[in-house]
Design a protein around this nucleic acid. Structure first.
Lengths: 213, 213
DNA sequence: TATTGTGAAGCCTTTCACAGCA
DNA sequence: TGCTGTGAAAGGCTTCACAATA
């Protein structure tokens, strides 16, 4: 299934950033970008930008640069986000609700096709008051069943930290392929499940380290 | 001001993770941890863990491991988060509101001391309905003044992407030291200001790359 | 001419393997 | 004995410098 040679993890992280910058360029009606411009926007070296792309093909035109639209398309293909991904959100508190209506998800191919909570009735009122597009909310006991029927591949955990590992276990049992943990408690899962912990405080910790030192 | 020798950026990122794991261990009443246990929780090599700490001092006891509480204290000191940091949140939509009541910030020394919006009156009603602790909300025109009076050092941007750069400029003008951009649009600031862009989609992009390949 | 694509050099990070020590 | 701290080796990533070319 490996379409490409071994790629540095850092390259994959940067691809997401290039994509955000390309969207920005597109909004400003720029048709073409040099590696130097992209590099500058992302605070990396221009050779780095070219090398990152070179792992996957020759996307540029010598003397000209990269076509913004084409490059965007190619990066999406590389990342695998050129198709729709079905997502379930578990835990409809403040953060979960925010994600349900998060416009940047709607713009991408990320489709939140179901939400879960221990108190779906209370939550339905809470959500409907603030949502444009409705997302059906289920009791978390129905997780496995709904994951199967709605073909959910990715679970996003937004429950309180004390419940995070339990929910992670339930997601594994429900056969999701990947988990994105937004709760501030680290969870662990079997090796065949892909996991990313996204701790908000980490970004602040990091910022503050460089402010202090 | 540089307390330490040159440290790999990756080390700083990992320190945050170790901290989250140590909090987890503390919650489970573990007094001591080996480098191997921490390494396992964070999916890194045990030698890596020891080397990361060794940049800053000798925190462990040979034959025993690391005292959880002490190590936590030391990491917080290294990162500079052993003191209170005053933060302002700009943009009180769904995400901004979620951050205002985000419990993990309250537990740490991150104090959101003011919030800003272009429509603070509408927002006040919106917030008060869902908040325990009140955070005063100002019109964004008062940003510079309030940053000064409340000694805000860090600004968190949670406005829509079209407004992100403008708000970043206002924050720079208001003399914050660091900016954490939660909006999905990259912003740029002068070099003397520390900036972190936190794109939610990046975590998903990354997860999906490894699911696809 | 301007800018990409890339081999090779240089640098940085991780891992190994074991000395040091409670 | 068991686990940390660390010098040295291995590995990987970034940058340089320039050939290739639109």
């Amino acid at each position: 299934m490996a379409k490409y040679p071994k790629i540095p993890e850092a390259t994959i992280r940067r691809l997401s950033n290039y994509l955000k910058c390309l969207e920005d360029l597109e909004n400003r009606n720029e048709k073409v970008s040099s590696s130097a411009l992209l590099a500058n926007m992302c605070n990396v070296n221009a050779a780095q930008v070219r090398k990152d792309f070179a792992y996957f093909g020759e996307f540029g035109i010598r003397g000209m640069g990269y076509n913004v639209k084409e490059l965007k398309f190619n990066i999406k293909e590389i990342l695998g986000i050129n198709r729709e991904w079905k997502i379930g959100v578990i835990g409809i508190g403040n953060m979960g609700s925010a994600l349900l209506v998060y416009k940047d998800f709607l713009k991408q191919n990320y489709k939140i096709v179901a939400a879960f909570d221990i108190d779906p009735v209370k939550v339905i009122g809470h959500i409907s008051e603030r949502m444009g597009r409705p997302v059906e909310i289920f009791h978390v006991d129905r997780l496995k069943e709904v994951v199967k029927v709605r073909e959910i591949e990715i679970g996003i955990i937004t429950v309180p930290p004390s419940e995070a590992q339990k929910v992670a276990n339930q997601l594994v049992d429900a056969n999701v392929k990947g988990i994105l943990n937004f709760s501030p408690s680290p969870v662990s899962v079997p090796k065949h499940i892909r996991l990313r912990n996204l701790f908000f405080t980490s970004a602040l910790d990091n910022l503050i380290y460089y402010l202090s030192n």
